[in-house]
Nucleic acid binder design. Structure first.
Length: 304
DNA sequence: CAACTTGTTTACTT
DNA sequence: AAAGTAAACAAGTT
């Protein structure tokens, strides 16, 4: 699943493959094969993108930047222009870059950028939640618009987290909120909370200084470790096959924790699957807990 | 067939 | 009233 690390790797790939090259053509397998709006709910999520995308033909890459899970790909201006066009890219839940020879398209290629070296860089996106948004103005405001600080780049401190992790929401729900911190998804939020030894259900206001320090340390550490492990020319998104699950808690309900041996628990938090170790991530604070933080979960009787 | 995934928007509940 | 929760939606794989 593309979270911050996969987007960062995608940024590096695109930088590598496009640096110093000019886009010779834009390939669209179908007129509306790629989304050109960030929102998936607006009625015009699928306007004809060919015209706007054609604006990058003949242009050289200036830079590829990333904030959270968004990427901004900017192109050179022509003579007389104040600035060139740019593309705001989001991988959605299954997007990735694939570089292929001109005569070969990946199975789920939604838009392809042919470079002057003949290679084509495709947005391959089976579920089509990804998008490539053509922009004529400055891309950078849109890169960060509505997002909190980047979870990897921003120097994360306990003080910074104390400012942003507020209210009664469970800490995992807040960590997944892109306006609080940009880049974490369900998998790496669960893994980072495990690393920090913090129960996902802990209300933000109940987080201790020690827990905030642990999170400030482990969130970037988790993300950086994944970037390092996965960096390369082709990213593979692992399916939910227990046999090849690279994660410590995610998708491991019922299995013994690698650290303490307790059975990994699974419940639902903020409408999403949640995995944690009751041994390593104790729920109750060491004094008293006014109310049980975890309700007895009724997996089969959901809502009403 | 239902669960699962992200991000946005809308509609409830507390 | 504001804060928080939930659901709907887009699409396709398991």
């Amino acid at each position: 699943m593309p979270e911050l690390p996969e987007v960062e790797i995608g940024r590096r790939q695109l930088q590598r493959w496009s640096q110093g090259r000019t886009v010779a053509a834009v390939k669209l397998p179908a007129p509306t094969s790629v989304r050109v709006r960030l929102s998936t709910t607006t009625r015009d999520a699928h306007p004809d993108p060919s015209g706007a995308l054609a604006a990058v033909v003949g242009r050289a890459t200036v830079a590829v930047r990333r904030h959270g899970k968004r990427m901004a790909w900017t192109f050179a201006a022509r003579e007389g222009e104040v600035r060139g066009p740019s593309l705001l890219v989001h991988f959605g839940m299954s997007g990735r870059w694939l570089r292929r020879p001109a005569d070969e398209a990946p199975p789920h290629g939604r838009v392809g950028f042919t470079f002057d070296d003949g290679a084509v860089v495709w947005l391959d996106d089976p579920r089509r939640f990804g998008c490539v948004v053509p922009l004529t103005g400055d891309a950078y405001p849109w890169l960060t618009e509505g997002l909190g600080p980047d979870a990897l780049q921003a120097p994360l401190t306990a003080e910074r987290l104390r400012e942003r992790l507020v209210g009664r929401r469970p800490v995992k729900v807040a960590l997944l909120d892109q306006t609080v911190l940009a880049g974490l998804g369900n998998i790496h939020a669960a893994e980072a909370l495990f690393r920090a030894g913090v129960a996902p259900h802990t209300p933000c206001h109940a987080l201790t200084d020690a827990q905030l320090r642990a999170l400030a340390r482990q969130v970037p550490r988790q993300l950086a470790a994944v970037v390092e492990a996965e960096d390369g020319d082709e990213v593979v998104y692992v399916s939910r096959d227990p046999a090849r699950n690279p994660f410590v808690v995610y998708g491991r309900q019922g299995e013994p924790c690698a650290t303490c041996g307790s059975a990994i628990e699974r419940d639902r938090l903020g409408g999403r699957a949640n995995y944690w170790c009751p041994g390593c991530q104790p729920v109750s604070s060491p004094g008293r807990s006014p109310r049980p933080t975890i309700e007895a979960l009724h997996p089969e009787s959901k809502a009403r």
